[in-house]
Every structure is written in C-alpha cells, then in structure tokens.
C-alpha cells in the first residue's frame, strides 16, 4: 500500500469506520480509471476527494462528508 493510500484510509476510517476501505476501493475503481486503491498517488487526491464527498454523503452528514473530502484534498498539498 502506498503511503498516501495508507493516510487516506486512516483519515476515512475516522468518518466511515472499517467499511471505509470498501468505499475508497469502489471510488478509485469506478472513477479513477480502474486504479487500485493501494496504488494511489498524491496526484489522485483532488479527484478522489470529489468522489468521496459525493459517495460518503449518502452515509454521513453532508458537512462531515465535505470535511473528509477536504482532508483528503489536503494530503496532496
């Protein structure tokens, strides 16, 4: 697992629990051209953050989803 994947998973689990990996894998697979989540790089963070915000909003409050997305986006900086 790449360092960035590890960090994103760690942050996401705070919001989504142990199923965070399932959600992240689906986002990278369907929205980042079939990318495997563990191969994620910093350059993918912006795009992933956008899709995580949309997907996670189905399960957690909107503001929390945006907060999570912002944290993922922040890892690229």
């Amino acid at each position: 697992m790449s360092i960035i994947s590890d960090k994103i998973l760690e942050i996401s689990m705070e919001y989504l629990g142990p199923a965070a990996i399932t959600l992240l894998e689906r986002q990278t697979k369907f929205h980042l051209n079939g990318l495997v989540f563990t191969d994620l790089q910093s350059s993918h963070c912006e795009e992933l953050a956008k899709w995580v915000a949309l997907a996670s909003a189905m399960f957690i409050e909107q503001d929390m989803a945006l907060e999570l997305a912002e944290k993922i986006r922040g890892l690229a900086r």
């Binding site: 689990m13 705070e14 919001y15 989504l16 629990g17 142990p18 199923a19 965070a20 399932t22 959600l23 689906r26 189905m58 399960f59 957690i60």
Partner: peptide
C-alpha cells in the same frame, strides 16, 4: 456508534 452504523450502511448498500 455512528461510525459503526456508517460502516454497516456502506456494507449493506447495493453498490458495495
């Protein structure tokens, strides 16, 4: 508890 429910929701959702 919320985190646990969120995980359950994700795992039970048809897309996942």
């Amino acid at each position: 508890f919320k985190r646990m429910i969120t995980s359950l929701k994700i795992l039970m959702h048809k897309d996942y």
